[in-house]
Design a protein around this nucleic acid. Structure first.
Lengths: 166, 166
DNA sequence: TCTGTAGTTGAGACTGAGTCTCAATAAGGA
DNA sequence: TCCTTATTGAGACTCAGTCTCAACTACAGA
């Protein structure tokens, strides 16, 4: 998990420099936390993580720094849920799409070259310039599909909430 | 635009019946407004629209009724933006995906059979059961692409904010 | 007509994500 | 040491969406 952190932090520091921003201890702590916390995280999770190292840090600084990381394309927003975005670090990752289990919250990543090609073609047809995209399938994962038939309405968390499968 | 409203309202009434809910004047007014307001609307827009006909209606009722319509698959949520969902009526519509212009807010709909096939295949590979999906390309539309080079940072609204192109 | 019941509604309080504002602080140069 | 500028964090604020609860409505039975 920590593999590649050094390189990611280097990109982050470079991005800060490019934007004329200083590499303050707070920003570096937030960057490091963002690259080591689990792959799809909320602002709150990131904030709690950073707090362990920098107890005096404020929520606002976390939001601000995330915004910088997004500008630098080091992190992307994922509008999976209603209240509150999820964030995902990008560096060292090939682009991928997501399946989100509506029962247990598990997030499965998948890649499909043909989908990417087709969407590029569709964009070209409309002369639309793609900056980023979001492609998410909502439904039931393998485990929840099974248990759906027997235990209806069971709460989340049964099969590896927010784990990662590739 | 009003074409097919009758059929949509019939589906809505049937859905209400199926769920054991009454077809109250409020619910019908909300249904009608949802099917006649522009194709991607916010709760606030819908609320204002309904208010014209039923001035005493409350926001909560609009939220509640929208939830019912979503259960009945007559409306879908689109997590395009940070603060607040957009909603889109489904009936009489083939499934489609979206391109969202980050400059003027224009929403372009597109269909691609091959993408649908590929995503079904990817889901099958993970034994994932798709209930719905969201596929959105973010970037610049034809018009904004042009003007981007000359007038950087111009505000939204120049090229048909939230219009529909197919 | 009256009463009881169940479903529905709307006002307003509440929650939680995210933004704004502003005084305090830190860092760096003269 | 003083000045300037960038950064930070607390707290107020906004906005979408939910929760709660009293009031209202429709309907059935007495």
């Amino acid at each position: 998990m920590t593999r590649g952190i050094g390189r990611q932090m280097d990109s982050f520091k470079r991005a800060l420099g490019d934007l004329g921003l200083e590499a303050t201890p707070q920003r570096l702590a937030i960057g490091e936390a963002a690259f080591t916390v689990r792959p799809h995280f909320t602002v709150e999770e990131l904030f709690q993580r950073v707090r362990k190292r920098e107890p005096r840090i404020g929520r606002v600084t976390v939001y601000r720094t995330l915004k910088v990381m997004m500008q630098a394309r080091l992190v992307e927003e994922r509008p999976f849920r209603k209240g509150g975005m999820l964030y995902e670090p990008m560096a060292g990752h090939r682009h991928h799409d997501h399946m989100l289990c509506l029962r247990c919250g598990k997030i499965i990543e998948f890649e499909n070259e043909r989908i990417e090609q087709e969407q590029a073609r569709a964009a070209a047809r409309h002369r639309f310039q793609i900056l980023t995209h979001s492609h998410t399938l909502f439904g039931y994962c393998r485990n929840c599909r099974k248990s759906c038939c027997s235990t209806r309405g069971a709460g989340p968390g049964e099969c590896g909430r927010n784990g990662r499968e590739r």
